[in-house]
């Protein structure tokens, strides 16, 4: 190993070490302050209380149920968003007229804070899981449609010309060029979607739910059990990291070219 490589490696290790140190320091200080009564754990909770709460949830068999509910809603909303946005993007790509007509409406819907639609969803769909999943879809779908459609539209003209020199049909141009050309755009959109989708689901669970991590957090705050609120947030962090890792793995697998 050269001097440069060694230096580079040392620097990387130092960064990782500092990152870990900050985390440990934060947790330790929090715990110590709580233990010595210097902060009010009724409001701030404490790391040990959070762990106790999680163990308690596990012992009463609720932990994985709540995680599963949120995960299931997220995956469903995510998958539906993906399918619907690809289908709509294809329709818009095929019809330039429709795309131009619909464009201002998409922009309008995009700038609307979707959470404002919550009350309407509950009245129209009902105070049930369907409303939560719809919220998850609503929050992600406009951005998905816009980025996938733009990807389709930005297919290099020279490649389309190439396909035409081989007398390719529109169907061939789409299936053999436009779609594969945009797999990456779609995966990137997925990456943004997962985080957004989770936001939508938690928002939905805040509005109406009987289970799920959003339910835990909301319930905790209503009964002023900050341990439960913090535990919910902690689980949510772990869950979002996990989902992110899965998507990054899929992305890597696709990156052979």
């Amino acid at each position: 190993m050269s001097e440069y490589q060694r230096k580079h490696k040392r620097k990387k290790r130092l960064i990782l070490f500092t990152q870990l140190a900050i985390f440990i320091l934060f947790i330790t200080v929090w715990e110590l302050l709580a233990k010595h009564g210097m902060i009010n754990t009724f409001i701030t909770s404490s790391p040990s209380n959070i762990i106790k709460t999680i163990i308690n949830l596990y012992n009463t068999n609720n932990l994985f149920n709540h995680i599963w509910v949120t995960l299931y809603e997220t995956i469903l909303a995510f998958t539906l968003t993906l399918i619907i946005s690809i289908l709509i993007s294809i329709i818009l790509y095929k019809s330039d007229f429709l795309a131009k007509v619909i464009d201002p409406y998409l922009t309008l819907l995009n700038s609307l804070p979707k959470v404002a639609l919550g009350p309407i969803l509950i009245i129209w769909i009902g105070a049930n899981e369907k409303s939560i999943i719809t919220m998850g879809i609503l929050i992600t779908i406009i951005v998905s449609i816009q980025s996938i459609y733009n990807g389709f539209k930005n297919t290099p003209p020279i490649k389309i010309k190439l396909m035409k020199t081989f007398n390719a049909s529109n169907r061939d141009i789409f299936l053999k060029l436009v779609f594969p050309q945009n797999i990456r755009t779609i995966v990137n959109t997925l990456k943004i979607n997962t985080a957004l989708c989770l936001v939508g689901i938690i928002m939905g669970e805040f509005l109406t739910s009987k289970a799920g991590i959003g339910y835990l957090i909301l319930y905790g705050s209503q009964v002023f059990n900050l341990d439960l609120v913090m535990a919910g947030i902690f689980i949510l962090i772990i869950l979002s990291i996990l989902i992110y890792k899965i998507i990054t793995y899929i992305e890597k697998r696709l990156e052979k070219y």
């Binding site: 020199t165 081989f166 053999k176 050309q181």
Partner: peptide, 27 residues
């Protein structure tokens, strides 16, 4: 008539062989 364009316009997601066979496949 065959047409070779200004840019190679190779498809990044196809292997060299698949690229070379693209025209035949579409035709």
């Amino acid at each position: 008539i065959g047409y070779m364009l200004q840019e190679d316009a190779l498809f990044e997601w196809l292997t060299v062989e698949e690229n070379a066979l693209l025209g035949l496949k579409i035709l």
